[in-house]
Design a protein around this nucleic acid. Structure first.
Lengths: 357, 357
DNA sequence: TCCCTGCGGGAAAGGGCTTTCTCTGCGGTA
DNA sequence: TACCGCAGAGAAAGCCCTTTCCCGCAGGGA
């Protein structure tokens, strides 16, 4: 690899001058030398060693991002928002997938800190795990103590900047919608119970059902991976245990798609025989058939906010932005079937209308 | 930020010793000093500066990857394959999205080279653009001249290692399937015409139609973005121009999903009134309704192969692996409708069967 | 007793760049 | 003519590590 001094030697100048030309320094350099340096750069196909540069200018500009999995549409959307702001401000993003492994999350915090990132964004659910939470907070505190900025998306554990989707209200909206349609026998296809996102959404759902004089017993909940196959499998288990179910709430859209697959395989018509509700409103939700009724979270906006928070230096730090959830009515949730409606004792209401309720 | 000499000072040892303890060097250090160093590390929350490390050990280990967009399922799958091998070998991946912008691709080659990556993988279609191709090849050659390894996935332009999905045969399989089902009026929803992937798939398709005594006129092709909305829009244009179409081939699954959306919006039944074929077989293909008939490419495997190629140093370099395309019959392709079949003059054949033909 | 060996540790030389500081030489003013 | 100031270039001091080289010392063999 050609180095800066190779370039300088070839151009017959000092490395200092070469550096100034290449970086467009404010210090003036005569046109003649400039030309010579540029020519040498081209001839040698010189590319500066990024590590040396980053080491020399102790000026940190990249931003680290830790997500569960960028290829999961939920995080893909959030990342799109993060990226948008970062690009506007000329920041490079380093994105790491933790695959929901707390240890890996801890490792990545160190890794990114080692890479001298200016800020750190953790996106994705926190864990019900005190030991882990404490460790993570220690590491984040250490990082912040050296001037790093931290923001989290959808995690309670951190005491600084945060963007919080209103998972609980989202769950509540889902529950209220289904109750309004007359459903009482509602099953839940949930993500891992160790995730706070799961429990938050569940809590809202439970509250809605309770308000309607119904309830949500544990036997009507199945916990599985937060993805398509997890949803398919959990739905199968749910149906096996309780064939009377008239509605299923999936705690994210990927699981809902898995649920639809299982229902289709079993020949159950959605929403005529059984209703399905998703959560997140990821892009594919409108393209499945029937189109998925779901709770929308402003995913891209969550990314935008988080990145803005973290790059807005100087602002007093503990800022928490709660972003609202919103019900999106499409075609997978309908009134409780006639055969069971009599026992439900509540009139179904119109299915389409405003998207918020 | 604490530095190594801070740690050394606190532990009362030299930086050399501290470094040896921290990196688990093969050089022996007495337990006592080791303890002291480790204690100092913990107290100071020391994390080594990655740039300094990377600079000091001139040993390159990360691998650079340039894709069009990781959040596109096509690339997400490929990346999964890349990641798998990289993780096994303890390599870090630096993934960059070019968003199909050739200039950005060029920039990323430089960026990654600057970051001293051990190898570079370019995934995603090449461009019909000679000037760009020449520039890219120059940059890649310069990189290879300094010992870097390069592999491409699905690009013709590079003369070294390559993993090539058999796009042409895939197009051919799609065409043959549709002809076999009696279709003659076939429209194509294509990606940008500047992409070689588009033209390769189109060429195979055209060949199949020609063999069947049919043809594929330009007026039955619409070029659009390689995504869901592009597919929806191109389908609409196609239908407006030629309402007689009995089948639509989308040149990737995202576009096919867009096509299905447009057809649904227009009340056209798939496959009873019109058939749809996709390409790639991304995971969501089986979850749309009707499930998408498509041409499968071994996406994860493509990633695995490419990474293996590039990390298998010492092997003589120009290796090209062609991976086969395979037809996957699901529910969106059916026999040509009765009303038009008479004019088509060919008996439809069974729709389900072996997945290859 | 002397020498050699090997072990544990430190000094110091990079690694490639940025940036401050210093120096030279020129034009302009008194 | 003497002096000042400044533009433009280079020397050199970091940035923070890793690793080679070297040194001192203790133990073992002759």
């Amino acid at each position: 690899m050609a180095t800066l001094s190779d370039v300088a030697r070839r151009a017959g100048v000092s490395p200092a001058t070469a550096s100034r030309v290449i970086n467009g320094s404010s210090k003036p350099v005569t046109d003649e030398l400039r030309e010579r340096v540029l020519a040498a750069v081209a001839e040698l196909q010189y590319v500066p060693n990024a590590h040396a540069q980053l080491l020399a200018r102790s000026h940190r500009s990249a931003v680290g991002v830790i997500v569960h999995d960028v290829s999961d549409p939920y995080f893909a959307e959030i990342t799109r928002g993060l990226q948008r702001v970062a690009t506007d401000q000329g920041r490079l993003l380093m994105i790491c997938n933790s695959y929901r492994d707390p240890d890996r999350e801890l490792e990545y915090v160190e890794l990114l800190r080692g890479h001298q990132v200016a800020a750190l964004i953790l996106a994705g659910s926190g864990y019900h795990d005190e030991a882990f939470t404490r460790q993570l907070n220690e590491k984040l505190a250490a990082y912040e103590a050296t001037g790093g900025r931290v923001a989290v998306i959808g995690r309670h554990e951190h005491s600084g900047d945060a963007v919080m989707p209103d998972n609980r209200t989202g769950g509540y909206l889902a529950g209220r919608e289904l109750c309004g349609l007359g459903h009482r026998a509602i099953g839940v296809v949930a993500g891992p119970r160790i995730l706070t996102t799961t429990t938050d959404r569940l809590a809202g759902l439970r509250q809605a059902l309770t308000e309607q004089g119904s309830e949500l017993p544990e036997r009507r909940i199945r916990y599985a991976e937060f993805d398509r196959d997890g949803g398919a499998e959990a739905t199968a288990r749910l149906l096996d245990a309780d064939p009377e179910l008239t509605a299923i709430v999936a705690l994210n859209d990927s699981m809902a798609i898995g649920a639809l697959a299982t229902l289709r395989a079993r020949g159950l018509a959605v929403p005529q025989q059984i209703s399905v509700l998703g959560f997140d409103d990821m892009p594919i939700a409108r393209d499945v058939t029937p189109a998925l009724t779901t709770v929308r979270l402003p995913l891209v906006d969550m990314g935008v906010r988080a990145m803005s928070l973290v790059l807005d230096v100087g602002a007093p730090t503990p800022r928490v932005e709660v972003l609202p959830a919103e019900l999106v009515r499409r075609d997978t949730a309908g009134p409780v079937p006639l055969s069971t409606r009599a026992t439900a004792g509540s009139a179904p209401r119109a299915r389409r209308g405003d998207s918020t309720s």
